[in-house]
């Protein structure tokens, strides 16, 4: 099947403690941070590759296209997913300040209209903004079925439907969705047996996690195409829905620890000192 995987470039979450807010509080600064693909999107790429390959024979069953938004150097992040095995990329050039979940969803809809994929597979959320919204908005705009927080996916009915296990608070909710559809993935989608495409032998065990970009894959990725488009040329409403009046860091933790004798004392402190009750 043809799969479109949106991939957002985010600050390396391992360096989250280095994230700073600009002096006037108007923005989050990225000075000195390294860029990485949003981990949930990387899992979506992995799940897309598993759906579209006959492992371990490495034969492709369909095309996996990655899409990203941002400055032209986002190409580097996209190249990493091409090195994992995605077939080509589309970069929509835009300033981060021009983007929110709604603009991204509208832009994705316009790309879906042009590309006509069978499936849009994406991370459940980006680890920078943690909005968890673009996938749901996109499904609504497209009028397509949607399954969020997917922890396993199986292709059924000769590729016409997917059975998706969704991770919800009460356990796993299994849904059957008819393609074309939007699926957003959770962490466990990269478990060794989380994806079944009906072709890869059932006993084939993938490594736990997203695959690494191999050097061979990196050399091949150089030759793969990344189409560059401009946000303004997509013909969509580019008005922002979300605005951020001010950013501030949570108060620094003192690191001091105090033991209390009784529950009453604890409640009293939480109520009167910490003022959280």
């Amino acid at each position: 099947m043809k799969i479109l995987v949106p991939v957002k470039r985010v600050c390396d979450p391992d360096n989250a403690n280095k994230v700073k807010v600009s002096d006037d509080g108007s923005s989050v600064t990225s000075d000195g941070l390294e860029w990485k693909p949003n981990p949930f999107d990387e899992y979506a790429v992995e799940a897309g590759l598993r759906l579209n390959e006959n492992a371990p024979k490495n034969e492709k069953l369909g095309e996996t296209v990655v899409v990203s938004f941002g400055a032209s150097d986002v190409v580097q992040t996209m190249r990493q997913t091409l090195a994992m095995g995605a077939d080509r990329g589309i970069l929509v050039q835009a300033d981060d300040a021009e983007l929110d979940s709604m603009v991204v969803a509208r832009a994705l809809k316009s790309l879906v209209d042009a590309e006509q994929p069978d499936l849009v597979l994406m991370g459940k959320q980006a680890v920078d903004g943690d909005s968890n919204a673009a996938g749901q908005m996109l499904a609504e705009m497209l009028g397509w079925p949607m399954a969020t927080f997917a922890m396993n996916i199986a292709t059924d009915d000769g590729g016409k439907t997917l059975t998706v296990g969704r991770e919800v608070d009460t356990g796993v909710l299994t849904l059957k969705v008819t393609l074309p559809a939007v699926v957003t993935v959770d962490l466990r989608i990269v478990a060794p047996d989380a994806v079944s495409n009906g072709v890869t032998p059932a006993d084939h065990k993938y490594n736990d996690g997203a695959r690494y970009a191999s050097l061979k894959g990196i050399m091949q990725a150089k030759k793969k195409k990344i189409d560059q488009k401009k946000l303004g040329d997509l013909g969509i409403d580019t008005g922002l829905t979300t605005t951020y009046p001010k950013f501030e860091l949570p108060p620094a933790r003192t690191g001091s620890c105090e033991f209390v004798e009784t529950v009453d004392e604890l409640v009293d402190k939480l109520h009167n000192e910490a003022k959280v009750l």
């Binding site: 580097q76 190249r79 990493q80 050097l215 990196i218 990725a221 150089k222």
Partner: peptide, 20 residues
């Protein structure tokens, strides 16, 4: 056949596998 891009991607992949 190489470029800064292949260099950075390879070093990055090695770092990732090593850490994870």
């Amino acid at each position: 056949e190489h470029s800064r891009e292949t260099f950075d991607l390879f070093v990055g992949a090695c770092a990732k596998l090593s850490r994870e």
